[in-house]
Write a protein that binds this DNA or RNA. Structure first.
Length: 218
DNA sequence: CACCAGGGTGGTT
DNA sequence: AACCACCATGGT
């Protein structure tokens, strides 16, 4: 059985240090997690810099912005009409809770369910926020992880086997390693699949685990 | 020009 | 549970 450390070392040797998440505060991580949905990081970063210039990377300030004005600021990140009100709801949630420090006291599962209750935060974004904003040991369950771990374990189909492997990873790797793992999985998935053919079954190139392995690893 | 990016939601089968 | 259409800009 592949150990967590082996998987992380293997990926690290190939792709080098990733150093996620680029942000100056935990709240900025949350905002970035929302903005980067279905968008490249460079576009999300542009939106974040607009917010920084307007001093809106704080919950107390962000919750008071008009949705229309916010939408214009975050336009480069795409889906700005839906992301604007969602960001305001997020800022309102954090501010009402008394700030990020107050939320950081909660246990991981409690925090997760609170995050999932917010509009625009699903499983994957909640995982990313728990890992990169609150330093919780979490394996982000995204399409890339499902594909790569699915191939490693040889299990295809329901995401339960992936969940099981993820729980093993969590048991045997620290937060710093898991932090690097998600970034490495994303880097590896992009790299390996760039040259891969489009899957005949689901007509996807990147986020698919049907296609045959394209190199010695996945 | 087609395809894709560090998804979520609401609806249907 | 799996699948679908929709949201929308910028890069390659």
């Amino acid at each position: 059985m592949l150990e967590a450390r082996d998987l992380i070392d293997l990926l690290a040797r190939r792709h080098g240090p990733q150093q996620w998440w680029p942000a100056e505060s935990p709240f900025e991580v949350m905002v970035g997690a929302m903005l980067v949905q279905r968008t490249t990081w460079t576009n999300a970063a542009r939106a974040i810099e607009h917010l920084r210039a307007q001093r809106l990377l704080e919950a107390a300030a962000l919750r008071r912005v008009r949705p229309e004005a916010l939408a214009e600021l975050i336009r480069p990140a795409g889906f700005y009409r839906q992301k604007a009100p969602r960001l305001i709801a997020l800022a309102e949630f954090v501010d009402r809770a008394g700030g990020m420090e107050r939320l950081a006291v909660l246990d991981t599962e409690g925090l997760r369910s609170l995050l999932l209750d917010l509009p625009g935060i699903g499983e994957e974004t909640a995982d990313a926020i728990l890992l990169y904003a609150f330093d919780r040991p979490v394996v982000v369950d995204d399409a890339y992880a499902r594909r790569i771990i699915g191939r490693i374990t040889g299990v295809r189909g329901d995401g339960q086997a992936v969940r099981a492997f993820a729980s093993l990873l969590v048991e045997d790797a620290d937060v710093v390693a898991l932090n690097e793992l998600h970034a490495l999985i994303v880097a590896h998935a992009k790299d390996v699949c760039r040259a891969a053919p489009i899957c005949q079954r689901c007509s996807l190139r990147h986020a698919c685990r049907h296609a045959a392995p394209t190199d010695s690893f996945v």
